[in-house]
């Protein structure tokens, strides 16, 4: 049994750690990606926006965030549950391959669900933004690719926060039952540092194509970047499956190998995101 103060501490940590991670990554985004800062300010702080609109945006932001997280996570949980049920009869019979495939299925399912939500968000806001973009107020020219990537980041982060809370609850439950160990602390730290950011970046990458200027280019580029995002996510999950289920490594070696490979994948994901972000300047024609 866990004592009451410890239970409250763990309960608070489960809820607040993903939100703190979200806050830190948001500050990093606003600091190093000036366009995101302009878009953010454009909605919340810019002088031209009257008080009503500013307050409306401040009100609707958490509504969209919570709705996006519940819908994307709900769709993913249902579909992943279905896939897992398909694989369960083959568990313990295929040298870890069914288990690994089951884990990897999160890639296509989650990315597609998040992209669907990001597309809805982009469509809603693009209609509002379009007038502003055409006018180019304050010398600010809107960029469809970057706007779409920001919508993807928003939806991905909302999903990441929700998922991180669920996983952290599992890890803290283990921590309460078994005490601290490498097997528990390592994934907890991973969740805190990268849980929100990695999902945000996957969806940011997958959404880049939504902002292209014609339907042909929009569909073509979305198919390409969504595939990249799915492969990155599936490989990221697959590393864990490979090490745990197929190679059956245990102890610190398994954790170190998994962490190093996942760190490399994280860097690759970040580079692809930044390249797409930079490329957004030449890909999109405003208006």
């Amino acid at each position: 049994m866990v004592s009451a103060p410890l239970a409250i501490l763990f309960g608070s940590a489960v809820v607040l750690l993903p939100l703190i991670s979200l806050g830190i990554w948001t500050i990093i985004l606003l600091r190093f990606f000036p366009y995101s800062r302009n878009t953010f300010l454009g909605f919340s702080l810019i002088k031209e926006v009257d008080a009503s609109l500013r307050l409306i945006v401040i009100s609707l932001a958490p509504v969209f965030f919570i709705t996006a997280s519940l819908l994307s996570a709900g769709i993913s949980v249902i579909l992943e549950g279905g896939v897992m049920l398909m694989f369960i009869p083959f568990y313990d019979t295929g040298a870890g391959i069914p288990e690994t495939l089951s884990v990897m299925s999160a890639g296509p399912i989650e990315e597609s669900a998040k992209l669907l939500l990001a597309f809805s968000l982009y469509l809603s806001f693009y209609l509002i933004w379009r007038a502003r973009k055409k006018k180019g107020k304050d010398g600010w020219k809107g960029n469809g690719v970057k706007d779409a990537m920001l919508c993807g980041l928003f939806v991905g982060a909302s999903f990441g926060v929700f998922e991180s809370m669920l996983y952290m609850f599992g890890h803290f439950t283990e921590l309460a039952a078994k005490g601290p160990s490498l097997e528990i602390i390592d994934p907890l730290i991973w969740r805190f540092v990268f849980g929100v950011a990695i999902h945000a970046m996957y969806t940011g990458i997958a959404s880049a194509g939504l902002g292209r200027e014609t339907n042909f280019r929009r569909i073509g580029m979305t198919a390409a970047v969504l595939s990249v995002s799915i492969v990155l996510h599936a490989v990221f999950n697959g590393v864990q499956g490979l090490v745990t289920f197929i190679l059956e490594w245990e102890g610190w070696v398994a954790f170190v190998v998994t962490d190093i490979i996942q760190m490399i994948l994280m860097v690759i994901t970040f580079i692809i995101f930044v390249l797409l972000w930079k490329k957004g300047d030449s890909l999109h024609m405003p208006g």
Binding site: M1, V2, F10, G11, S12, V14, V15, L16, L19, M165
Partner: peptide
């Protein structure tokens, strides 16, 4: 805005309470 952010605070607080309760029920 005040009501929506208040509801967000209620949600976070309720999640903290529920998770804490779950830990107590271990």
């Amino acid at each position: 805005a005040v009501l929506i952010w208040l509801s967000v605070a209620v949600l976070l607080l309720s999640m903290i309470v529920l998770f804490s309760y779950m830990f107590l029920r271990t």
